[in-house]
């Protein structure tokens, strides 16, 4: 299985994503610059965190028009796995690949801390190694992670089981509607989340609960391509 980690000017979690793929599942992974015009070689695309284009205008507003994003849209239509983390989530919503928007945290502060998350849907390609409702610890680090969508969109998210992660209990750190920490598109092959699973792949980092997101993706890909793949 082959992963791409997109790199925009201002991305800063690209190395973490790359290392997470190497260390958790040992699959092939490449950095792909934002000017790339072909992603056909990749089975999964990670859109990393950071401050693409300095977050000018709005988070992800300018990155959504990078030439690589046309390829990300094609990959999404082709059913490839796309995971946007933090700024990557913001870019995917700006690009229209995921519904809603991420606005300023309701407390106005940049929040950088471990968060308890509830796995709200373990039937996705990104979460099949978790149990439904499992509580996991993954860090967040953002100033604009307050997920907003209108009531109609929220009803649709619920009806299609598109809410993938919620902040557990009463720990909502940013004001997100319904404690939403991560969502998928309707087809389930595109997921965006504010927490950073790539920063939670080893006990030395404080948690290894993010590991299973990567093993989930590999697992889903193997099931899709027949279980005879080794490695």
């Amino acid at each position: 299985m082959k992963f791409a980690v997109l790199v925009f000017p201002g991305s800063n979690c690209d190395i973490d994503c790359y290392k997470a793929v190497e260390d958790t599942i040992g699959q092939e992974v490449d950095y792909v610059w934002h000017t790339a015009t072909d992603l056909s070689a990749y089975d999964a695309i990670l859109v990393p965190g950071g401050f693409s284009y300095g977050d000018y205008l709005r988070c992800g507003a300018i990155a959504q028009f990078a030439s690589v994003m046309n390829e990300v849209k094609k990959a999404a239509e082709a059913g490839k796995y796309i995971l946007g983390i933090c700024n990557g989530f913001q870019i995917l919503t700006e690009a229209g690949l995921l519904p809603g928007a991420l606005i300023r945290n309701n407390g106005l502060k940049f929040v950088c801390q471990q968060e308890r998350l509830e796995v709200a849907n373990n039937k996705t390609a990104f979460t099949n190694q978790y149990s439904q409702g499992e509580l996991i610890t993954i860090p967040i680090a953002h100033g604009e992670g307050n997920y907003f969508c209108d009531d109609a969109t929220l009803a649709e998210l619920k009806a299609n089981n598109q809410i993938v992660f919620r902040y557990a209990g009463d720990t909502n750190p940013n004001g997100s509607v319904e404690n939403i920490a991560g969502i998928s598109n309707k087809a389930g092959n595109v997921v965006g989340m504010m927490p950073h699973p790539e920063r939670a792949v080893d006990q030395l980092l404080g948690s290894e609960d993010g590991k299973r997101m990567f093993t989930s993706i590999l697992n889903a890909w193997r099931e899709q391509h027949g279980a005879a793949v080794n490695g």
Partner: peptide, 14 residues
């Protein structure tokens, strides 16, 4: 401008 039904935490702080 931020839509009326969307919270504006900056405005609230000011």
């Amino acid at each position: 401008t931020i839509k009326q039904n969307v919270l504006d935490p900056q405005g609230t702080a000011v």
